[in-house]
């Protein structure tokens, strides 16, 4: 069995890209995983065309949760908010690669949940978006 801890994951964990804060972010969300205490915070600055100009994450927790958050920031930069909302679980999992157990999936997807929470707060949430978030 190949390890989930690939060189790429470890590299993003050790040297996180886009870690920090954005004082003028319009989109901002934070969540924790109560099971293991992982914390992820996401901040996005968008321009007048609703394109993500800059993005930062902050947080603490296991390598999977922190590396996936960092990878996700790279994925959203330059995308329109509309395209950010279309990012799926599968997109994030393919960035991480490897097989995750059910418990570790929660670590991997926490950043996506936080990102979407922020985006839906910004563009308005519906029953469908609430359901989507509870499934993450």
């Amino acid at each position: 069995m190949s390890s989930i801890y690939s060189e790429i994951i470890l590299d993003y964990y050790r040297y996180p890209r886009n870690k920090g804060t954005l004082p003028h972010a319009q989109i901002h969300a934070r969540d924790t995983n109560p099971l293991c205490g992982d914390v992820i915070e996401m901040q996005l600055e968008v321009d007048e065309k609703n394109t993500v100009k800059d993005v930062k994450f902050n947080g603490q927790g296991c390598a999977i949760s922190q590396a996936s958050a960092s990878m996700l920031t790279e994925l959203v930069k330059g995308k329109t908010v509309d395209n950010v909302r279309k990012i799926s679980k599968e997109d994030v999992l393919s960035l991480i690669g490897g097989q995750l157990t059910a418990v570790r999936l929660k670590c991997a997807l926490l950043s996506l949940k936080v990102l979407k929470t922020g985006v839906y707060n910004y563009i308005g949430s519906t029953d469908a978006t609430k359901e989507e978030l509870s499934g993450l």
């Binding site: 390890s3 992982d38 296991c62 157990t101 570790r104 670590c107």
Partner: peptide, 13 residues
């Protein structure tokens, strides 16, 4: 500074 969850996942492997 290895997080306990990463440790447990590695041990599980």
């Amino acid at each position: 500074d290895v997080h306990a969850h990463d440790m447990a996942s590695l041990l599980d492997e």
